[in-house]
Every structure is written in structure tokens, then in C-alpha cells.
Amino acid sequence: MSFPPIHRVVTGHDADGQAIVISDGPLPTVAEIKAIPGTVFHEVWSTQGTPAPVDNGVDPTLGPLLLPPPKLGTRIRFVDIPPDTADFELNGAKRMKEAFAQIGDEHASTVRADSPHPLMHRTESIDYGIVIDGEMTLVLDRGEVLLKSGSVVVQRGTNHAWANRSGRPCRMLFILVDGQYEPSIARALGRRDGGGPLGS
């Protein structure tokens, strides 16, 4: 099963300040993650800074893939996630450095020998994850939650993975907002992660 392409409309202003359509069509950046076949990122938009510049600037999705949002910014993307396979469960952890390097953040992977899932990772951001079609299991250090179409996860910089145990692809929408750990959480994560950079 494959999902339909995303249709994106981007608005702007003409020289007189009138609202116009800047682009109307498919997303220019759609990329499969080579180390996790079937996982496809559909880049919708991102903003730089807060408040976000309201302008007629260039499409921010045209550069290389980046997992986290820009500093003080946001990112929105759809992700198609294939069902987990026995091979992925057994050997996926070995490919995570390559997978996260392709999306510009190889230090986001937190997978270890005792991790509950090969895709365990963390970013210093607030992420809204919305199940659009299919089922997904949110995996945390301690606990799991089954998600169905219409479920929304508010991901607050925690170590997590998305496990697809449904036997069919799942499409999720993610809205990522740059964040900063509260000092006591930052200290706890620094101790647990060996004092290295957060998210490493």
C-alpha cells in the first residue's frame, strides 16, 4: 500500500500587499531514508526564528534533509513508516547512525544494546505527532502506547521510537518546535548520557 502524494499550497503577497498563491502542487522534497527502506520524509515547510518572518522568501524545504527544527524555528513534515520487520528488529540498530546522518542529525540516535527499539532517538524540541492513517506504537524508555488514526502525541524531548507493528504502512504528520530543556531535566539527561551533548 502506498499513500497519495501531499498537495501543498503556499501563499504570499504581491507588491500591493494582496494575498496570492505562490505555489500550488506537489512537495518539492520527498526522500526515502536509505537505511530504513519504506520510510519516506515529505518536507512541507520550516520557519527560522521567533517570531517567524512573514515574507515571500525562498522555499525552505529545498535544502538537505534535517531532522530537528531550525534554532528558534519550526518544521512540518509527513512521514510514511513501514511495518517493522524481523530483520529490522534484529539488525536495524546497526544502521541507525547512517539513517540519522541522512537526516542531518546522527547524534539524535540513542540506541544501545538494551534499547527497547532500534529507532530510539531524542531531539531537544516539542514535537506534535499526529497519526493520519494506520497504527503506530509509541515506545519510551518505560512504557508504550498504541496510537490509531486521530491520535496525537505531544513529544517533549523524550527518548522514544515509533514502532509499526500493524503489518501495514502508517502515515504520520509531525510539527516540530525548537526547544530547550528545563535545567533539572538537562542535568538528569547529562548524567544518564555520560555528560555528553544533549541528544547524543
Rank of each mutant, 00 (worst) to 15 (best):
D59A: 10
L138M: 15
T29S: 14
V152E: 06
R112C: 05
A99M: 03
R171H: 05
R192Q: 09
F78M: 04
T50S: 14
A186H: 07
E182V: 13
F100P: 02
P169N: 02
V54Y: 12
G129L: 14
P83F: 03
R165L: 02
Q18S: 11
G199R: 01
T110R: 13
F78C: 02
V21M: 01
A52I: 04
G150I: 01
M1Q: 13
T47P: 02
R187L: 10
G179A: 14
G134Q: 05
N159S: 08
W162D: 03
V44W: 01
L138I: 15
T110M: 06
R165H: 12
S115R: 13
P169C: 02
F41S: 03
P51L: 03
R112W: 00
Y181W: 04
E124C: 06
L67V: 07
T85K: 07
L66E: 12
L198Y: 02
S125I: 08
S115H: 11
P64I: 02
T11P: 07
P82D: 03
S46I: 10
G17P: 03
I76K: 01
I76S: 07
E124W: 00
L147Q: 06
F174T: 09
I6M: 01
F88N: 04
Y128K: 07
V79N: 08
A161G: 06
G92M: 12
G143N: 15
R187H: 07
R75A: 13
Q180H: 09
M1I: 14
G194A: 02
L65I: 06
V9Y: 03
T137E: 14
C170R: 02
D114Q: 11
